[in-house]
């Protein structure tokens, strides 16, 4: 057994500098399209987007990142590609009047997260799973995965919410004690993604539960999910709504 102890110590610290510093390793994020002025190429780019994430006015493209499924049709195989930004701080809050999205001071350094798969393709869930590997190690931030709703402060939902999961999802949410927050992760959870609109799926979690924090991406990389959780406890600023691509209400 000592071989494992020695191996573990010998591996050293691998954990990311985030959230204190920035993570600069290659391949940690797929990025998101940013939009901008592309002139005459705009209508063709908007046409290529199969999930209607792009819109244009006078050659300026705006992106609804909640709909982007990373199909790269706006950058690959086109003459004038759209700008992509390799960021990962994507968590944003839905401004509900009179409701505070963050959990508040007592929860800043300790939350228990319940993860519910409501029809996910496996990628978002796999990225959530990566948060427990040494590179991200979310325990150091006081974030823990819990299997029971009774212990959970944050409900993290992935997937577009299929009909046969809707009942279970509602029950889980009801079983959680207050205060509780809902974090929707991934394009499917935000807009239904490629599975909307259909007789068997909702168009995202918001059809079923009130959502507090949204993390776009298909799938969002572990750092983006981490940012979403930090937003939920008020330790990071949410992405400004304008930058997430939709008008502030």
């Amino acid at each position: 057994m000592s071989q494992w102890v020695i191996k573990g110590i010998g591996t050293g610290i691998k954990t990311t500098a985030y959230p204190r510093g920035a993570e600069r390793a290659a391949g940690v994020t797929p990025g998101l399209p940013r939009g901008g002025d592309v002139g005459a190429a705009a209508p063709a780019l908007v046409e290529r987007c199969l999930t209607h994430a792009l819109e244009h006015t006078n050659g300026v493209i705006s992106v609804d990142s909640r709909r982007c499924v990373h199909c790269y049709r706006c950058v690959r195989g086109v003459g004038q590609p759209l700008n992509w930004e390799a960021t990962y701080e994507w968590g944003s809050t839905i401004a509900t009047p009179g409701l505070k999205n963050e959990l508040g001071q007592p929860f800043r350094r300790s939350i228990h997260v319940l993860v519910v798969d409501a029809g996910d393709c496996g990628a978002c869930l796999n990225e959530v799973k990566q948060l427990n590997n040494p590179y991200y190690n979310m325990h150091r931030l006081g974030f823990f995965i819990t299997p029971t709703p009774r212990h959970a402060d944050v409900l993290l939902v992935v997937g577009p919410v299929t009909d046969q999961m809707r009942f279970a999802l509602r029950k889980v949410h009801e079983a959680m004690s207050t205060p509780k927050r809902v974090v929707a992760v991934g394009a499917c959870a935000l807009s239904g993604g490629v599975f909307a609109k259909s007789f068997v799926c909702s168009n995202g979690v918001a059809d079923v539960l009130p959502v507090d924090v949204e993390v776009p991406g298909h799938p969002p990389p572990p750092l983006a999910i981490l940012h979403g959780l930090l937003v939920a406890v008020g330790r990071k600023q949410p992405l400004p709504l304008a930058a997430a691509g939709y008008e502030p209400t």
Binding site: A26, G27, V28, T29, P30, G31, V69, H70, C71, Y72, R73, R76, A123, E127, H218, P219, P221
Partner: peptide, 13 residues
Amino acid sequence: VSGELSGHRYLFG
């Protein structure tokens, strides 16, 4: 490795 090579960690697109 997949992300660096192709832009996407799960080889989409």
